[in-house]
Design a protein around this nucleic acid. Structure first.
Lengths: 372, 372
DNA sequence: ATCATCGATTCAAACGTTTGAAAATTAGAT
DNA sequence: ATCTAATTTTCAAACGTTTGAATCGATGAT
C-alpha cells in the first residue's frame, strides 16, 4: 500500500504511518545516540510500524551519507580451486566479527575478469581489498588506482612486498624441506619431483627447499625424475598433466620409489597415472602432495601432504586489513611479509621405501610394458 | 592533491579541474544519451582528466539516484561443498553477460548466518535473489520480507514451488533410477543403499527412484543394507559417516556386491571404509555416488556417479531471475518447477558383479574379522 | 510574569550521482 | 540588427539516509 516508486519501504513511509518526522524515525531505527532522548513510547511505536511494513534500511543511502560502506573486497583467483575455500572461511569469520561484509569476487583464473573486478570493488567503495592469488597479476596497472584511492590492500598466497603490498603466505621453502625430509625419513632414495609451473610463484621456493634438503642428506636427484608442470588453465588441469607425467616417468625407465608432487591435485594425478599402470600406492610407490585440500583428505589412500594453515592465513589477512582501515588513510604501515609455518600431515599415500628396490623396478617394468 | 573528505575522487573534483560543471562531467563519463550533444573536444578533455585522477564513479551514489543496483544476491548454503561451485560458475557467467553483479554470500550451513545474509541482501537492494540450498530453510520468515519488497527469488537444488518460489533442481527420482539401473545392468543383485539424511529434500525422491527400479526388476533389497545417513553439519561429515557405515555393513554379515551411496562424498567415504577392511574397489565391491563433483572425478578409482548439470542449472537460474527483473514488479510469473535431466557417468568404481558371489562373501568374512 | 532548563522532536544540509528543464552561446535566416 | 533555431552547457531537484543545530513545550526557579 505505502509502496514508493522504488518499491522499497523507506523512512518516509514509516514517518507518515507513525506521524513522526523522518529524523525521529531514523534516530530510533538506527539506534543513534540521540535515541536515548526519544520517548520510550515513541520508540516502541516506530519500531512496531517498521517491523510491520518490513523496513530494511537502504545500505546505499546509508553508506553514502555515513561515508562508510563497511565492506571489504575479496578477490579470489579461482573459487573452484579448493585451496581458496578455507582462506575465504577464515576471512569471513574474522570479518563478521568486526562488522564488515566481504564482497566476494571470483576471477576464474582470467586476468580480464580479475581486472574488471578490481574496477568494481573500487566503485563499490570497499574499504579494503584482500587478494587471494598464487598468481602473477602484478602487471595490472589498477594497483596504482587502488593506491590513489587509499584503499588498504593485502595479498594471500604470494609475496608482493616488493611492490609495496603486505603479503601472507606459507613458508614454501620450509614446506618443500619438510616434504623431502619426510620421504628421506621413510628411507626413499629414488625420488621423483614434480615441480610447479614457472608462472606460479610457489614453485621456485618449494623446489629450493626440496633440493637443499636432498643435498644436505647427500642425496643426488636423478634429473630424469625432475619434471616441471606446464602452466595451468584451471585447477583440474594440474591433475591431468600429472597423470600424463606419471606415465612418462614410468616409460623413461628411471627407477623411483616416491613422487613428491607440487600440490595435492597434482599428487592425485600421479596416483591416478601410477594406478593405471598397475602400481599400488603406497606399496609400490609413495606419493605426496602439498596444501592439504579437501580432495587429498577424502581420497583413498588419503594423501600425505604439507598442510598450509589456510584458514588461519585468512583470519590474519582479515585482521590486518581491518587494522589498516582503523589506522586510517595516510598512516599506512610499511608493507610486511608474513610467512606461516607449514606442517607435515602424514597419511596413507606414503610408506617406508621397499627394502628391495630391484623387485620394485622389475615389477614396474613388467607392468608398464603392458599399459603404455 | 584534490582529495575530498571521502578520500575518493568525485565528479566535483573533475569539474573543478576541467572547468566544466558537474552535470557535464557526469553526462560525459556516464555516457548518457545527452553526451552526443557535448562537444567532442570537451568529452576528450574531461575523459583525460578523469583518467589522470583515477576516477571511479561511486556505485552507491549512482545506484541511489538511478534506483537500480544491478546486483543479484547469491545465497549459497555452503561454499565449501564442491556442489555449489559449478552452480555459482553458471550463475556468474550468465550474470556478467547481462551486466549484473553477483553478491555472493556463504551461509556455511548455518541457519543463523543464512538469515542474517538474507537481511543483508535486502539492505543491499539486490534486484533478485538466487538461493542455492538442498536444505530446509522454509521456516525463515524473512521470505515474507523478500516478497513484501517485491524481489524476485529463485531456488536451485530444492523444490519450493509449494511456497510460491520457482525452483530448479535435478530430477532426483530419475537419477536414483538411473543409478540403480546401472548396477542392475552390471549384474548386481545384492545392493546396499545409503540413503540421504531426512533433513535433505533430495533423499526421498532419490530413494523412490531406486526402490521403484529395483522393484521393476523384481529385485528385493535386503533391509539390513538400507541405511540412512545422519544429519550433516558440514560437507565433509557425510564422508566420515559413510566410512563408519561401510564398516557396520561388513560387520552385519549381510552380503553385498555394490553400494549405491547418496552422493559423491558419501561414496568416497564408503570407498575408504571398504578399503580399510581390505576390499578392493571395484573388484570386490562396486560403489557409486551422485552429483559428479570434483573429488569424485579426481579420486582413484574415479567414482561412477549420476551427474547433475550444475553449471547449466546455474545458467538457467540466472537467466530466469534476470527475466523476472525485466518483467518488472507486479507482473510476476507464477512459480515454475524445472527438473533437469541427470546423466550416468560410468567411471572406474563400478564393475560387473562377480560371477561367484560365494567367493566374495568368504573373502569379506575373512577380512572383516581381522579389521573390526 | 519572565527566564533559564530540560526533554522531545524537527529542520535542513549533506553524501555523489543523474536528469528533465532551463539557460547560455552560437549560427543561420531574414 | 533582430529573430529563430540549433548546439552546448548548466541549474536544481531528487534518491534515502544521517546528524549538528534549531525549535517547541513544559517544568521549575526567580
Amino acid at each position: 500500500m505505502s509502496q514508493r516508486k522504488s518499491g522499497h519501504v523507506t523512512l518516509l513511509d514509516i514517518a507518515r504511518a507513525s506521524g513522526f518526522s523522518v529524523s525521529t524515525v531514523s534516530i530510533v531505527l538506527s539506534e543513534a545516540p540521540l535515541s536515548q532522548n526519544v520517548a520510550a513510547t515513541t520508540r516502541e511505536h516506530i519500531r512496531t510500524i517498521a517491523q510491520k511494513l518490513g523496513y530494511h534500511p537502504d545500505a546505499y543511502a546509508r553508506s553514502l551519507r555515513r561515508r562508510s560502506t563497511q565492506t571489504i573486497g575479496i578477490l579470489a583467483f579461482d573459487l573452484s580451486d579448493p585451496y581458496c575455500i578455507p582462506i575465504m572461511r577464515g576471512i569471513q569469520e574474522s570479518l563478521l566479527d568486526s562488522g564488515y561484509l566481504p564482497l566476494v569476487m571470483d576471477a576464474q583464473t582470467q586476468r580480464k575478469l580479475f581486472d574488471s573486478y578490481l574496477h568494481i570493488v573500487l566503485e563499490r567503495r570497499v574499504e579494503g581489498v584482500i587478494v587471494i592469488a598464487s598468481w602473477v597479476f602484478e602487471e595490472t596497472n589498477l594497483l596504482a588506482d587502488i593506491k590513489k584511492n587509499h584503499v588498504p590492500i593485502l595479498i594471500v598466497g604470494r609475496d608482493l612486498t616488493a611492490r609495496g603490498i603486505s603479503s601472507i603466505l606459507v613458508d614454501n621453502q620450509a614446506g618443500g624441506a619438510l616434504a623431502m625430509r619426510h620421504l628421506l625419513d621413510l628411507g626413499h632414495k629414488q625420488i621423483s619431483v614434480i615441480r610447479g609451473p614457472q608462472e606460479m610463484c610457489d614453485s621456485e621456493p618449494r623446489w629450493a627447499g626440496i633440493r637443499q634438503t636432498a643435498a644436505q642428506a647427500g642425496l643426488e636427484l636423478d634429473p630424469r625424475l625432475i619434471i616441471e608442470l606446464p602452466g595451468q588453465v584451471n585447477p583440474a588441469s594440474g591433475f591431468e598433466s600429472a597423470r600424463r607425467i606419471a606415465h612418462q616417468m614410468l616409460a623413461s625407465g628411471a627407477p623411483f620409489t616416491a613422487v613428491l608432487a607440487f600440490d595435492d591435485l597434482t599428487a592425485l594425478g600421479v596416483v591416478r597415472g601410477l594406478s593405471e599402470a598397475g602400481l599400488s600406492i603406497p606399496g609400490d610407490c609413495s606419493v605426496m602432495g602439498f596444501d592439504d585440500v579437501l580432495p587429498a583428505e577424502i581420497a583413498t589412500p588419503a594423501v600425505t601432504t604439507i598442510r598450509q594453515p589456510l584458514k588461519e592465513m585468512g583470519l590474519e589477512a582479515a585482521q590486518r586489513v581491518v587494522q589498516a582501515i582503523k589506522r586510517g588513510p595516510g598512516k599506512e604501515e610499511k608493507p610486511r611479509l608474513h610467512l606461516t609455518d607449514p606442517e607435515l600431515v602424514a597419511r596413507m599415500s606414503t610408506a617406508e621405501a621397499p627394502a628391495n628396490a630391484g623387485r620394485q623396478r622389475k615389477r614396474r617394468e613388467r607392468l608398464t610394458g603392458a599399459v603404455l
